[in-house]
Amino acid sequence: MSIKVRLFATLRNGRGKELIVDLETNRTPNEVINGLDIPTEDVAILLVNGRDGTLDQLLQDGDTVSIFPPVGGG
Protein backbone atom coordinates (compact mmCIF):
# COMPACT_ATOMS: atom_id res chain seq x y z
CA MET A 1 0.00 0.00 0.00
CA SER A 2 0.99 3.56 -0.60
CA ILE A 3 1.29 6.04 2.30
CA LYS A 4 1.89 9.77 1.95
CA VAL A 5 4.30 11.01 4.62
CA ARG A 6 4.51 14.72 5.39
CA LEU A 7 7.44 15.92 7.47
CA PHE A 8 7.86 19.26 9.22
CA ALA A 9 10.45 21.51 10.85
CA THR A 10 13.77 19.78 11.60
CA LEU A 11 12.46 16.38 10.49
CA ARG A 12 12.82 17.62 6.91
CA ASN A 13 16.61 17.78 7.19
CA GLY A 14 17.99 15.17 4.83
CA ARG A 15 14.55 13.66 4.25
CA GLY A 16 12.49 16.20 2.33
CA LYS A 17 9.00 17.59 2.88
CA GLU A 18 6.76 14.94 1.44
CA LEU A 19 7.40 11.32 0.55
CA ILE A 20 5.36 8.46 -0.81
CA VAL A 21 6.23 5.28 1.07
CA ASP A 22 5.26 1.82 -0.19
CA LEU A 23 4.48 -0.61 2.64
CA GLU A 24 3.13 -4.11 3.00
CA THR A 25 -0.45 -4.19 4.30
CA ASN A 26 -1.09 -4.21 8.07
CA ARG A 27 1.70 -1.73 8.78
CA THR A 28 1.78 1.14 11.29
CA PRO A 29 3.39 4.59 11.64
CA ASN A 30 6.12 2.83 13.63
CA GLU A 31 7.34 1.19 10.43
CA VAL A 32 7.16 4.54 8.66
CA ILE A 33 9.38 6.36 11.17
CA ASN A 34 11.80 3.46 11.44
CA GLY A 35 12.11 3.39 7.67
CA LEU A 36 12.92 7.09 7.68
CA ASP A 37 15.37 6.75 10.57
CA ILE A 38 13.34 9.10 12.79
CA PRO A 39 13.90 8.44 16.52
CA THR A 40 10.65 7.90 18.41
CA GLU A 41 11.46 10.73 20.83
CA ASP A 42 11.53 13.16 17.89
CA VAL A 43 7.87 12.42 17.14
CA ALA A 44 5.91 14.93 19.20
CA ILE A 45 2.78 15.18 17.07
CA LEU A 46 1.57 12.37 14.84
CA LEU A 47 -1.48 12.84 12.64
CA VAL A 48 -3.11 10.30 10.36
CA ASN A 49 -5.32 12.08 7.84
CA GLY A 50 -5.23 15.18 10.03
CA ARG A 51 -6.50 13.43 13.13
CA ASP A 52 -4.59 12.34 16.22
CA GLY A 53 -2.76 9.13 15.42
CA THR A 54 -0.77 6.56 17.34
CA LEU A 55 2.48 4.84 16.43
CA ASP A 56 0.87 1.41 16.47
CA GLN A 57 -2.39 1.98 14.60
CA LEU A 58 -2.92 0.11 11.35
CA LEU A 59 -2.60 2.25 8.25
CA GLN A 60 -4.79 2.01 5.16
CA ASP A 61 -3.75 2.45 1.57
CA GLY A 62 -3.79 6.15 0.68
CA ASP A 63 -3.43 7.43 4.26
CA THR A 64 -1.50 10.63 4.95
CA VAL A 65 0.82 10.58 7.96
CA SER A 66 2.03 13.97 9.25
CA ILE A 67 4.91 14.02 11.71
CA PHE A 68 6.15 16.97 13.78
CA PRO A 69 9.06 17.20 16.21
CA PRO A 70 8.46 19.11 19.48
CA VAL A 71 7.35 22.55 18.32
CA GLY A 72 4.84 25.09 19.44
CA GLY A 73 4.14 28.68 20.16
CA GLY A 74 1.28 31.07 19.87
Binding site: A9, G72, G73, G74
Partner: peptide, 13 residues
Protein backbone atom coordinates in the same frame (compact mmCIF):
# COMPACT_ATOMS: atom_id res chain seq x y z
CA UNK B 1 11.08 24.33 18.36
CA UNK B 2 10.56 27.97 19.33
CA UNK B 3 14.27 28.91 19.10
CA UNK B 4 14.60 27.34 15.63
CA UNK B 5 11.38 28.49 13.99
CA UNK B 6 9.69 31.02 16.24
CA UNK B 7 5.93 30.83 16.67
CA UNK B 8 5.45 30.59 12.88
CA UNK B 9 6.11 26.85 13.03
CA UNK B 10 2.44 26.53 14.01
CA UNK B 11 1.23 27.34 10.50
CA UNK B 12 1.70 23.79 9.25
CA UNK B 13 0.64 22.14 12.51
Amino acid sequence: GLPAYGTAVLVNI
